[in-house]
Design a protein around this nucleic acid. Structure first.
Lengths: 215, 215
DNA sequence: AAAAAACATGAGCTTATGCTCAGATAATGT
DNA sequence: ACATTATCTGAGCATAAGCTCATGTTTTTT
């Protein structure tokens, strides 16, 4: 029931949506997105109603529906921006990574992972919860991207020996991601802590060392 | 608004709730909980409305509210049972763990972690999403328990050298838990795969080996 | 057998959320 | 100056979810 209703809303919505052309309306769109992010972070998903968003953004409900097909579309747009930002942060620290030996490449990668998770841990957490239950959601894209990066790093380093870089990349991404997601949300002060980076490096390098031994 | 309303509902609810004394009503309670678990797993959180639960359980809405203060209380009860079950599975494989050397203790622990995550990965995932945003929810209890177990294991093994067993235990729990949560939900067939257990062991033992080297 | 207690029912109330629409205001074009 | 297009407004509609309560049924007690 809810899902079919959502789909209907989205369809008729995307058609009705108007692309903002003047500066005023562009500001409105930004205000709506900012307001949504604030409410989600500070008050949680249940507080993010259309009325609350419009009120905090300082616009009317009507304006909200002039540029977004509905609440879901606002959240999707926010999620899109968020993952793009995280992905960009990770990409930045990636260029010369292939040329470094693994003992130096991993610390850089871990640092990049930490930085990308620092973008907005609270919002990240809420957005993950708001995604539909299926796989392949917008928020999944960052994990998939990280896994691809990790696999490429493993593949391009002859000093590591794993027989399935894709699988190992995904595995290590989950391990590192699991630590970062929870740690950053619950103890944000530890984000700056160099201990965290070293621990993550030990985790990855220790694992790779044992893989080498096995082969 | 929502939160204070929830609290109010819960209060007046717990008072109104009747403890089932006859076999018939105990069956009703079970039917409600089973129905809720099924709907949550198969159709997702949005489908778990009071009406849908009552319908699937084959009871009336009235009966539902005779034994539960509301939807939240049903879900809390379900969460409580779920974590208790996971915790029990983990506890079982724990007795003689302290006496084994770390190279044998870790595989057993990993096996126990895998088994406990096999209880009901899908339900686990949904229940996590349904918890309030705060810390210290019912669903958090399993992670905290795992971290305590890990810390105890580290502390009682003289062949590992970590200066903060609590912290390292939490760290490793997040890493292992991160892998298991995602892997088991997306690729349940890999749960039986011995590769998973070996990979987790390598992760933990590799990390500990590097810690030892540092000290 | 009668009374009391436990259990079950479901129509319908309340509330709140997502969303529409007819009309007002501002910017832009001619 | 006028017309057109873009933007904004907010009262109110439709919907659905949580929940109540008066009534009926079954079980237990006396």
């Amino acid at each position: 029931m809810t899902k079919s209703a959502d789909k209907k809303a989205k369809r008729s919505a995307e058609n009705r949506r108007r692309a903002p052309s003047q500066a005023r309306s562009r500001a409105t769109v930004e205000a709506i997105l900012t307001a949504t992010a604030q409410i989600l972070s500070r008050e949680g998903p249940d507080a993010a109603t259309t009325k609350a968003i419009a009120a905090r953004a300082g616009v009317s409900i009507g304006s909200l529906y002039q540029y977004f097909g509905g609440l879901d579309e606002i959240i999707d747009t926010l999620a899109r921006r968020h993952v793009d930002e995280m992905r960009a942060v990770l990409s930045d620290a990636l260029a010369e990574l292939i040329r470094l030996p693994i003992d130096e490449a991993v610390p850089r990668l871990m640092q990049a992972m930490i930085t990308s998770h620092q973008v907005d841990p609270t919002l990240d957490h809420v957005l993950h919860r708001l995604q539909p239950m299926q796989d392949g959601t917008i928020m999944d894209e960052f994990r998939d991207f990280s896994a691809t990066v990790a696999a490429a790093a493993l593949r391009s380093h002859p000093d590591v020996e794993v027989d399935d870089p894709e699988l190992v990349g995904a595995f290590l991404t989950e391990a590192v991601g699991g630590v970062l997601k929870e740690t950053l949300r619950r103890f944000p002060e530890r984000l700056e802590d160099p201990t965290l980076e070293r621990a993550l490096c030990d985790l990855v390098l220790g694992f790779l060392a044992r893989q080498r031994r096995d082969a």
